[in-house]
Amino acid sequence: MSAIAATPLHRKRDWPKHTFIWFFLLIELFPLYMMFQVSFKDNASFIAQPWLPLSPEDWKWSNWAFAIKLIGPYLANTVFVAVTGTFCSLSLAILAAYFFARHKLPFSGLIWSAFLVLMLLPSVANIVPLFMLLKSMSLLNTLLALIVVGVAAGQVFNIFVLRNFIEDLPKDLFEAAEMDGASHFQQVINVVIPMASPIIGTLAILSFLSSWNDFLLPLIILRDKELFTLGVGLIYLDGEYVKPWGQIMASYFLASIPLIIIFLFTMRLFVRGLSAGAIKG
């Protein structure tokens, strides 16, 4: 009886909270709306009416054509760097995490602390020597440089999370695999990867995102226009003197589309995975 009576009461009392949350969310989503609707305007109609969208028959698709032509190659470079980097980073991290989690070999404690100390090193002090190192390895102005630096930077965090996860897996699984004569590598492929796939998925998204969002390193390293990733490409677009806002916004939107696709498929995993990981850590 009381439960039935309580529900409408609670609902009534929740409306100030809903209003407040929507207030935050709407401001947060406003840039997205602006980006979308301005991307179909030319400068004249934008200045005449910045806020409301044009009716669809007036939409200027040429902005998008321009954006695809301009951003397309940058997009391809960024996808290449982000995908290769994420794949390499996680492959290495899974192997290393297996090493730490499954057996205690001599020096593994020492190696572990060597990794942990890195968490204390802020990358800001490193950027100048890193630049010189890449220069001496003649990796300046290559996409490979972005990949290897990204892989190295992600190792500590990925290994840290994966090690905890692998240690918590039931030991019987590994013993059973060993009985069947599985080598360590086979155990990684057949036991660790299937069992840890949710956490690997979350780490992969985080790693992809950080590589996607990086602009300082590309800005310092890349010189050739053909090699530009989104970061540098957009910075150069911003430097134009007279700004064609419609084309710029279409480019921005285009730069977000790969992330939209990823999030559409992984939203559930991401929202849950992040929460679960946070509880543990």
Binding site: E28, L32, S256
Partner: peptide, 12 residues
């Protein structure tokens, strides 16, 4: 809904 703004690259 909170995750939605994350699709916009930080630079953008």
């Amino acid at each position: 809904l909170l995750v939605v703004p994350m699709i916009v690259p930080q630079l953008v």
